[in-house]
Design a protein around this nucleic acid. Structure first.
Lengths: 207, 207
DNA sequence: GTCTATACATCGATAGAC
DNA sequence: GTCTATCGATGTATAGAC
């Protein structure tokens, strides 16, 4: 993997990222990417053989950045309760200010999720043990009896599902439930609180 | 809205439903729909002026059926606890045996969700009061102190998000978490139990 | 109503001059 | 490296015979 990036190549990658995020792989037009990069279509094919190559490069970067932001730098909270609260807050804030990335990841999942899976695997190796960093944190909390016995994978699915849903089903949430803009401070704070309250009471040992 | 359906029209609608479900609006080919219906492309345009018209008709039917199955015929359980448990079970089973429909709804949401919103509004009028049937059931449970005070809309988002996530992120779930096929009996039963346990403990009053 | 044949538009990709 | 011009494939839609 070459890391020598000419000025033109950087412009192309930046333009491609924007267009692919906005329109998806199939919706994106090579012409639009070229125009946005201030070059012509032939030069685009000179740098990246074809659309597939260009898309693969962009998708890999986008997904890697997303995963690293969310799962790599995890809150170093002393208790699992605080860890959970901070993770939910970070995750909702990040989804909220990167709505196009969430949509892009959905597209990628519909396409089969291959890039997603590969990047997660790479992240796992990087952190050793071949598991999600978060999986270990949860397993530890169970072992130390901070929370009731459960399968970490299921808890992770629950957290992500609850946090991500409003951003996936935004039209329904905003127009049917008549809730405020899902990116607004008001909505985010309310949602964070509700997600945490349900989850924490749902997994704590005291029940 | 005409309800006179010729034999050919029915064949077209059935074929279009299958192809649109499998490939989405943009991925679907009029040629493929024609072939599957056993006719030619010209006849397709004779019945439905263009692709948009055909898609709109199919999408409306698909989404209406989905919404009616899930939200119209609700469990008539005496307690909210049982209601919740049954709803989760029905919803997960339905998603599981209609994976293509879930994917189709995601596509529709990404497109702006207009058809979805219109059909939900229609369903609301049909049930009076201008709200989700489920919204009322939750509000009642709060009023009768079966569960703690909360906004019904947030609880609905939590339920749907937790149930739907595995079917949205299927590649990650099955390949990274190494969980069984999300449509398997084994997985569904485990997921139903986990979702219910978290949610019920998360909203019951006793906490 | 149903067909064959074809027009017309779009888009990714390449040839070839500079 | 960068450009203009154009090819070739694909896909929607229509013309016109039966």
């Amino acid at each position: 993997m070459s890391h020598i990036h000419s000025e033109t190549e950087k412009k192309i990658l930046a333009a491609a990222k924007e267009v692919f995020l906005r329109r998806g792989k199939d919706g994106a037009r090579m012409q639009e990417i070229a125009r946005q990069a201030g070059i012509n279509q032939a030069l685009l094919h000179y740098y990246f053989r074809n659309k597939d190559t260009l898309f693969a490069t962009v998708a890999r970067h986008l997904i890697r950045d997303f995963l690293e932001t969310i799962f790599s730098s995890q809150p170093e909270a002393p208790t699992f309760r605080e860890f959970l609260q901070q993770f939910i807050s970070n995750y909702i804030d990040h989804l909220s200010s990167n709505i196009e990335v969430s949509r892009f990841i959905l597209w990628e999942l519909e396409r089969g999720g291959d890039v997603m899976v590969e990047e997660i695997r790479a992240l796992q190796e990087q952190h050793g043990k071949g598991v999600f960093p978060m999986q270990q944190r949860i397993a530890k909390a169970v072992a130390q009896q901070e929370i009731r016995s459960l399968e970490p994978e299921h808890l992770i699915m629950s957290i992500i599902g609850m946090c991500a849903y409003p951003y996936i089903a935004r039209p329904v949430v905003e127009r049917i439930f008549r809730l405020p803009d899902v990116t607004s401070r008001e909505f985010r704070d309310r949602r964070k609180q509700e997600v945490f309250q349900v989850l924490w009471n749902g997994i704590r040992r005291s029940s």
